[in-house]
């Protein structure tokens, strides 16, 4: 008789999600709990997600400081770093303008630019050996809540009272369904990003964990190129594009 009960507590999930079940096999795509601390009576953990996200953020801050330095000492004929920064800013603005048209404001460009850089760098952080922070539902749920707050803020600011009465269109009977539709945006935005990045993380971890050493030379580069870089770029694009489409929809509705 197999003693399952002895192994069962390993399957219990903590606040952070997934505990190691396969820890003996060298397959590791789980969120590790590093530093416990007490939060209003609950024991919560600083996890690998926090560490990897902080590394990504430090990278962004260093880039931002270098960019600031090069812009403060801007020349009429741009060279080197100034070229890169100007190209990035112009690309982001063109990207927002292509989706929002006449509704484009500098504040939207700031928000979309921030969030697309963060999501893209988080998604591709797998290629330098980090565990992608967006493969934790906590991260993507927060990002989705930010976006939906932005959408609803614009909705109420632009439509005033019509933002609430439009929930009763076309007939009042549909109010619950319309309300669920507004909140389903959070779930669909966050689960889409989480599911894609998590699927990539699991597949790469299975490849590294299950195969002999000679299969791990060279070949994973293609897996990383597709699952981290390509898929990550698509998801960053889709997340921001959907945010902009929803905001534009509210502004025109």
């Amino acid at each position: 008789m197999v003693n399952v009960a002895a192994n069962a507590p390993l399957l219990l999930s903590g606040v952070g999600g997934m505990r190691a079940v396969l820890s003996g096999d060298g397959v590791d795509f789980f969120i590790h709990e590093l530093v416990p601390y007490n939060f209003f009576g609950h024991t919560v953990y600083l996890t690998t997600t926090h560490v990897c996200e902080l590394i990504v953020i430090v990278g962004i801050i260093i880039f931002a400081l270098v960019a600031r330095h090069s812009i403060m000492h801007a020349k009429t004929v741009p060279t080197g770093m100034q070229n890169v920064v100007e190209l990035l800013v112009e690309t982001l603005e063109k990207y927002v303008r292509s989706a929002m048209g006449t509704h484009t404001k500098p504040s939207y460009v700031n928000y979309i630019g921030t969030i697309i850089l963060l999501i893209f760098l988080c998604n591709i952080s797998g290629i330098i050996g980090l565990r992608a922070p967006t493969a934790d539902y906590g991260t993507t749920l927060c990002l989705a809540i930010f976006s939906v707050s932005m959408i609803q803020y614009n909705n109420i600011k632009h439509n005033k009272i019509a933002a609430f009465t439009s929930l009763f269109k076309p007939i009042p009977l549909l109010f619950p369904i319309n309300l669920i539709g507004e909140f389903a945006t959070v779930v669909s935005l966050s689960l889409r990003l989480f599911g894609n990045v998590m699927a990539g993380t699991v597949m790469i971890a299975l490849y590294y964990g299950m195969l002999p050493i000679f299969a791990k030379i060279g070949i994973p580069a293609f897996l990383h190129a597709y699952l981290d870089v390509f898929s990550g770029a698509i998801q960053a694009y889709v997340f921001t594009m959907l945010t902009m489409v929803f905001i534009t929809d509210k502004l025109e509705g």
Partner: peptide, 26 residues
């Protein structure tokens, strides 16, 4: 096309999330 495909992918990802949930956070 990529935007439409990513939106269409969502239902499949719901299935994936449920499968992962059943395996690792049952």
């Amino acid at each position: 096309m990529l935007l439409g495909q990513a939106v269409a992918e969502t239902t499949g990802l719901y299935g994936l999330v449920i499968a992962l949930l059943l395996f690792y956070a049952n």
